[in-house]
Amino acid sequence: MMRADNLFKTFNPGTPLENPVLRGLSLTIESGQFVTVIGSNGAGKSTFLNAISGDISPDTGSLFIDGQDVTRQSAWQRAALVARVFQDPLAGTCEGLTIEENLALAMQRGQGRGLSRAVKASYREAFRDKLSTLKLGLENRLGDRMGLLSGGQRQAVSLLMASLQPSRLLLLDEHTAALDPKTAAFVLELTDRIVTENKLTALMVTHSMRQALDHGHRTVMLHQGRVVLDVSGDSRSRMDVPDLLAMFEQTRGEKLDDDALLLG
């Protein structure tokens, strides 16, 4: 379970560049729920995600994951609770390290790190099994450097890495945005499978209303640093992109004019 209470975050306060990004954002996600987040540019999606992961610290408000107050914890301290896949395929893995070394790093997420061998023989077996489920032939390339893989392959491995250790919350930050449509579809399918198989609580930011409605159990729209729409259950399953737009215009009394959200 994750609970965000009244989060505020302003970048460059007191300067001409002052930019209030989060303005009283509150959201509760129940265990096992898969929530998709949409919103136009500057709505605060990425800032919200970075606040949950600990990359940035909110000005006021609090954050609870699984009942623990993590508001003032740094990113590495809450890594045991939060797993993450980045938007940039290069960001989630180390390209200079081998596939198995990257997986071994993820294997120790939330664990202590000692002086025993990082890539253990028993791990290798498990890595091969997991990689074979991707059907990318990576199970035979454990010793290859990550940099040799394509963006889609790296994103698939990132997803796998995020599921190697149990987490209370999986954060997906537009993780298909940098991929071509076919690869994006593959990674999304993989996301659904990994979330379902591991019964993960997940938060997926996306730039596509279509994706937001097609995946997960619940869709939340952010606007000007706040949750303005929150649909789930039957009303959501009957919904299509135009309905979502109409609902948004109704609640806000303004027209949405972000092409990125309408396309796709």
Partner: peptide
């Protein structure tokens, strides 16, 4: 190699 990724791995 990748400090942000390292922090995300705890």
């Amino acid at each position: 190699a990748n400090p942000r990724m390292a922090r995300a791995q705890g």
